[in-house]
């Protein structure tokens, strides 16, 4: 998949996963790389960016195995941002389908 396209959609993936529940970095990376082929390391700059933007916060939580882990938690503005991005994405897909004749995201 195109790099720029992937980049934009990764924000959406991370925010969506964090809407389910708080997660630590490794877990997020794992969940995403299971579904989409990425260089795993790129998730961390993304996490740092959305944290600086106030979409997520972090906290440390003891783990049953090993040292405490850094958990990411979505903020209200993060949840709003996710809805916004999903709306934009849906509109984009709609437009794309009209032009290419593909249905339901098809073979994108």
């Amino acid at each position: 998949m195109n790099v720029q396209l992937k980049k934009g959609t990764l924000d959406m993936c991370v925010l969506s996963l964090l809407c389910e529940s708080d997660k630590y970095g490794y877990e997020l990376v794992n969940r995403i790389s299971e579904a989409i082929e990425i260089s795993e390391g790129t998730i961390y700059p993304l996490l740092k960016r959305i944290k600086d933007d106030g979409y997520v916060t972090t906290y440390l939580k003891e783990s049953s195995e090993g040292p405490p882990r850094k958990y990411y938690s979505i903020t209200e503005s993060g949840a709003r941002k996710k809805d916004e991005l999903l709306d934009e994405w849906a509109a984009f897909i709609d437009g794309l389908n009209k032009i290419t004749g593909l249905k339901d995201g098809g073979a994108l």
Binding site: Y24, G25, Y26, S39, G41, Y44, P45, G66, P67, K70
Partner: peptide
């Protein structure tokens, strides 16, 4: 953050080499 990523990966049985390979080039990151 990356230290933690390695530690969790190692605990789950992966090697340092494997973990760094899928993370990608540290220079790009």
């Amino acid at each position: 953050d990356f230290g933690e990523h390695f530690d969790i990966g190692l605990r789950s049985g992966k090697s340092e080499e494997e973990i760094s390979r899928v993370l990608g080039d540290p220079r790009d990151i």
